[in-house]
Amino acid sequence: MTVTAEKPLVKIEGLHKYYGHHHVLRGIDMTVNQGEVSVVIGPSGSGKSTMLRCVNLLESISAGRISVGGQLIGYREVNGKLHDLKTKEIAAQRREIGMVFQRFNLFPHKTALQNVMEAPVHVKGQPKAAAQKWALELLDRVGLGDRAGHYPSQLSGGQQQRVAIARALAMEPELMLFDEPTSALDPELVGDVLNVMKDLAKSGMTMIVVTHEIGFAREVGDTLTFMDGGVVVESGDPREIIANPQHARTKEFLGRVL
């Protein structure tokens, strides 16, 4: 869809994740170029959400390397030896990466506007007036300018998710992660959220989207990755994979969701 600069922004190399003895990710390799929309699909339990959560260290990395913008995530490498980053340094890395959750996770004690303003004011230290102007712009962009004073509990699921997108964008991240952003929504509310994401993709944002929306993958995705059992089964042009999956597991999965 978008013209990609072919400059890798995200590089995942040999990523493994264990929960105790449970081997969830078994060697993931993935590259996302600047301005690209990378869609990840797969059955539940395939490890796609875990992979996404490793990118901003909501899950620790058991083995392998993830880098965003050339910067190693979670570690500093000194003479070939990895050192854990401090909490503060991890927080600094996370500022460059926006995340949208399946269950929105808006702050329920803050209005839509306050949710969007929170990080610019209290992480970046922006003056309140400027942050408010910026937050209202973002709420307008996701079609919720008239809902600024509403608390999350007064918004529909779709509206909450759009506020959550605005909240993540408020930090002006170079990468946006979407963890099944429409899975908790009533079917008629999915469209509004996907439209916001499409606009965002058109604006040139680099995005990794874990989703079950095959239509979105076909329309907006630059690459499609199919994961199953903690490995990447197949990856490539979304339209080709959807029309003509090469692997039996991909075929079976697409057959079930399409």
């Binding site: 004690h109 506007l113 408010q132 209202l136 008239d146 600024a148 004073g149 509403h150 007064q154």
Partner: peptide, 29 residues
Amino acid sequence: KGVDNLAPAAVNPAAAKAAGPGADAQRSM
């Protein structure tokens, strides 16, 4: 605030202006 108490008290003037329809919209929401 936001859970048991939905009074839109925390909104400052500019935001309230942007929020447009006030209490009515909220009730219908």
